[in-house]
Write a protein that binds this DNA or RNA. Structure first.
Ligand SMILES: [Mn+2]
Ligand SMILES: [Mn+2]
Ligand SMILES: [Mn+2]
Ligand SMILES: [Mn+2]
Lengths: 220, 220
DNA sequence: ATATATTTTTAGATAAGTCTAAATTTTTTA
DNA sequence: TAAAAAATTTAGACTTATCTAAAAATATAT
């Protein structure tokens, strides 16, 4: 039996909310993320448990089963590959592709994904710096640092974002902060944790804590 | 308001069944084509009429309105562009792409279609020789000849197929009959209308009436 | 022209995914 | 540890797209 769009979206969200350690996800958290009501989530959880995709005990929160994890990762793989296609081949901006990929990720067909992957040259990361699971379902999250943890004087590489909202990505575009940019922290203001950073050895700019909190970087 | 997958499929099928002259389509014909029951079709027709997408009077069959025609043609445009993508860029065979395109055609986003069209170089025909409507919704059906109407001695160009079934397309592959091939009719058997044809000035082969009936060609 | 056959529509159900309101369970606080 | 608050589940309802069975309309045949 096939999984519906809705079921796939739930699995993907459970995967994302339960994080690296696979901790329990609450009904309310899912209601929030899926923009539905808690009662609707409960109904869906019963169904997913029925299908063996999640571990679910009433009032105890949920975790993915191995089978559910597999489905979630395949959906994530498709989402990220399509995003690469949209940006690299069709010329979309990284701020424009999320919603379209949200639909494309549900197109069934193993062969399609594999051919797309080959066509794109087996990319390892999507346009937002997120890792793309391989065909076997191996997904290794690189351990990046959040910019707020970087000290004055350090030079780091911009590797990804935590917030994927178009408005945030457009803000980064306007600031010249793109994937691969070299960021040197020049100054951190004690009062509001805003910072002065130099981008690619060029212009220096102020960024708020809100921005720093959402930038993933790598020390070199 | 958006149209659902189901609504789009109905509109596309009505377009196809009502042909060039836009003749009325019967409930039963739609039930057949959509693999549903007549009662379900009636329900959907009421809804489509409600939305102003079809002209519908009880017991009288249906036609697309201008608005419905526009939607149908956009879906057809997307279907055929995605088929070009799958064959030209991903390396699928022409016999493998229909079902996948049947899903991709419902992905919403004007911009996506236009960028895809540009990426593909504004193709005029899909892998089966069917014309691709332009961005404004202009769809001109070229008037091809069916191979059964070609006389002995004539040399024609293979331009398209009427049957899109994978089994038929695979049969053509095995026979070396591809789009653009030159077909010379050498002999027609009176008894069963089977024919001997020479492909690209090379091998001669026998084809049944069943095959001839589904080949669209152009006189030169 | 009337009876018969075919086509189409209506009536009443079902499953998926959602909702609100009420009941229940768990957690927190005093 | 008992009361209050928060989280979760249940009950009952709605919408979409489908179904079967029965009724109504149209077409065909004697
Ligand atoms: Mn999605
Ligand atoms: Mn992404
Ligand atoms: Mn379709
Ligand atoms: Mn086609």
């Amino acid at each position: 039996m096939q999984n519906s769009f809705t079921e796939e979206n739930y699995l993907k969200i459970i995967h994302s909310l339960s994080g690296r350690e696979g901790t329990e996800v609450s009904t309310n958290a899912l209601a929030e993320s899926t923009s539905t009501r808690a009662a609707s989530v409960t109904d869906m959880l019963r169904k997913l448990a029925e299908k063996g995709l999640i571990h679910y005990k009433k009032y105890q929160g949920v975790r993915l089963t191995d089978s559910g994890e597999k489905v979630a990762i395949q959906v994530i793989r498709k989402h990220r590959l399509w995003e690469v296609f949209l940006v690299e081949k069709l010329g979309f901006g990284w701020d424009e592709v999320h919603d379209i990929a949200e639909e494309l990720e549900h197109i069934p067909s193993e062969i399609l994904v594999e051919k797309l992957d080959r066509f794109l040259g087996h990319p390892k990361f999507d346009p937002h710096g997120d890792p793309i699971p391989d065909a076997k379902g191996n997904l290794t999250e690189p351990d990046y640092t959040i910019l707020t943890d970087v000290h004055i004087g350090e030079k780091v590489l911009m590797m990804g974002v935590l917030d994927h909202a178009p408005s945030f990505l457009q803000h980064l575009d306007r600031s010249g902060i793109t994937l691969g940019a070299v960021i040197e922290v020049k100054e951190i203001n004690e009062y509001d944790k805003s910072a002065s950073v130099q981008i690619n050895g060029g212009p220096t700019l102020f960024i708020s804590l809100e921005v720093s909190k959402n930038l993933l970087v790598q020390r070199r």
